[in-house]
Design a protein around this nucleic acid. Structure first.
Length: 257
DNA sequence: ATGGTTGTGAAACAA
């Protein structure tokens, strides 16, 4: 069972990349962020032809999340009940015996900005939502673009990024509170090294020089911890022509019961 | 060098 997350930065532009990567990597479940597509324009038929069911929550120009799966998808939740947020960043669904939550966490722009305050408030609300999700669905995977580098190993230049956006202590504390619900950063179950990133700025040849951050995460609930078999960051799609600035991150789970 | 690149959508804005 291969589970993956990928910020595609426009599914309109990246659909050929998604089709290609799915054909090569054959993920069973794929969470997409920044689809930037209204629901009416979601490429359901193309993804069905590629072998995937899809559910999605999108909007024009910004944000947008989707969950693709090779088996049927049920119990879809769009956003958080009681949090009337026009930004489409949260999608939850059940695939087989797994509960999947796909998050496109607020970027926050700059520490101290209005968007930064929104990010921290958003993370607190999401934390409360996830506490309920894990209670109802112990076999929970929470994945997406977290827009937070968990610690300095996940940052190419920790001094330059010190207390900057994506790396500040309040953001890392907010992520810690999410993990404390009973989730583990699956990549760190298998690799303790720095230098492994999931996002590289488009500018100044950052990918070629591996100047990146690891901000795309697949979190597994404690109930799934013993079933995690491998985790990886798939750098190849970032080398393709007209690539997203993010690359897919993968968790392999022991096959279901 | 307060730069640089990409996506959306037609000028900024977001990342």
């Amino acid at each position: 069972m291969k589970i993956a997350s990928w910020n595609v930065n426009s599914l309109n532009v990246r659909l050929p990349h998604v089709e290609r990567w799915c054909a090569e990597a054959m993920p069973d479940i794929l969470a997409l962020q920044e689809t930037k597509l209204e629901d009416a324009k979601f490429p359901v038929a193309a993804l069905e032809a590629a072998g995937y069911h899809s559910v999605y929550s999108g909007q024009k120009t910004y944000n947008g999340v989707a969950i693709l799966a090779r088996t049927p998808i049920s119990e879809v939740e769009h956003g958080i009940a009681g949090f009337d947020d026009p930004q489409r960043r949260i999608l939850a669904a059940t695939v087989g015996d797994l509960r999947i939550v796909n998050l496109y966490v607020v970027n926050g722009q700059a520490v101290g900005s209005e968007k930064y305050a929104y990010k921290l408030d958003w993370l607190a609300k999401v934390g409360a939502f996830l506490a309920e999700e894990i209670r109802r669905h112990p076999r929970l995977v929470v994945m997406g673009d977290f827009n937070i580098a968990p610690d300095d190993r996940d940052v190419h230049d920790p001094a330059a990024w010190h207390e900057q956006i994506l790396c500040s202590t309040p953001e890392r504390d907010a992520l810690r509170r999410v993990l404390d619900i009973g989730l583990v950063d699956s990549f760190r179950l298998f690799n303790q090294d720095g230098g492994h990133y999931s996002w590289w700025d488009y500018r100044q040849g950052a990918f070629r020089r591996n100047l990146g951050l690891r901000i795309d995460l697949v979190l597994a609930s404690e109930a799934l911890r013993a079933h995690c078999r491998a985790a990886s960051i798939e750098r190849e799609p970032r080398t393709w022509e007209r690539a997203s600035d993010h690359t897919p991150v993968v968790l392999e789970l022991e096959d279901g019961r």
